[in-house]
């Protein structure tokens, strides 16, 4: 499972660079953050409240950065 997570991270990084546009790259960054958080930092075994706070925090960061950076 951790190796699959690693492959997802590599694929997401390559797609983000190939695409090269900010919003998709930020969304992919959020997905990568969730993969690292849930799989590598083992949040998937944590209390559900911690999982929700982490996922919402990542989503909020992507949203705020997208809004602030938008012309």
């Amino acid at each position: 499972m951790r190796f699959i997570a690693y492959l997802v991270l590599v694929a997401a990084a390559v797609v983000a660079v190939a695409w090269g546009v900010l919003l998709p790259a930020l969304v992919l960054g959020g997905i990568k953050a969730c993969v690292v958080g849930f799989e590598f930092m083992e949040l998937r075994t944590a209390h559900i409240a911690h999982r929700i706070v982490f996922a919402l925090g990542v989503a909020a960061l992507v949203l705020v950065l997208s809004l602030v950076a938008s012309p």
Partner: peptide, 23 residues
């Protein structure tokens, strides 16, 4: 230690597109 290292990953995931991606 692993948690600290993963935090460096997480920070880079956002720093990278902010500087490298076009609008």
């Amino acid at each position: 230690t692993a948690l600290f290292w993963h935090m460096c990953d997480l920070a880079w995931f956002f720093l990278f597109p902010l500087f490298f991606a076009r609008p």
